[in-house]
Design a protein around this nucleic acid. Structure first.
Lengths: 110, 110
DNA sequence: CGGTTAATTAACGCAAGTGTTAATTTATGG
DNA sequence: CCATAAATTAACACTTGCGTTAATTAACCG
């Protein structure tokens, strides 16, 4: 299984996609906070986090008994790179991409 | 399972990702051509194509005994849309995206 | 019509994924 | 040191996914 298919596999589970989106939205969080938001048990979340970690989607930082998790931007870029590799195919016109870029969420830096 | 997780699930298998890339590269093809390129049996490919179809990633066109398959660009856009929704997160600077856009795949690809 | 080809569906076996509860590991604090 | 808390690992059950070969369906052609 390639790195990319492993990335897709990691995001193919609703619970894991949700974990990733939560970490993106709220930033680095301890496992316990993620468990609190989930509808399933702590061990189940723990193993989902392990899958995400092994796929390179999140990284773990230990502090005391806490394990802080955060999304690794590089992993998302791998997906972006793949779609961009085939942009000529899915983007018959640039309208949609132009619209998105026009939103320019990164306005500040640059 | 959301549409997006179903899309990721469809691309999480190496055989299916390969099928999609072949269809993007060579355009619409009959199932037989895809079987010829694969290392596994025709029934196996047939079912992978079914998964891709049910996920909305490919569409099927019948002509005689042949079934032509092609990738649906909208499905790839769903992925692009998701990544773009979180662009502010993974794109700390716009450099990479700028680089990709500058390649202008409209003329000559890589 | 009968035979051939393209493709799918059926039936089966086995590996992998996902949930639970119980047990274990590691660090904190009285 | 001992009790507690955070998190993971272990053990188990159940479902899903993926491959195979055999059987079936549908269209084409002499």
């Amino acid at each position: 299984m390639s790195d990319l298919t492993r990335t897709f596999a990691a995001l193919s589970d609703p619970t894991r996609l949700s974990l990733v989106e939560t970490l993106i939205r709220r930033g680095e969080l301890p496992a316990g906070d993620l468990v609190a938001e989930a509808a399933i048990s702590a061990p189940a979340i723990s193993r989902h986090l392990k899958v995400l970690r092994e796929a390179g989607l999140v990284e773990q930082r230990a502090q005391g008994t806490h394990r802080f998790y955060a999304v690794r931007p590089e992993a998302l870029r791998a997906i972006v790179d793949w779609t961009m590799d085939h942009r000529a195919f899915w983007s018959t016109s640039l309208d949609r991409l132009d619209t998105l870029l026009a939103l320019d969420p990164g306005e500040g830096e640059r």
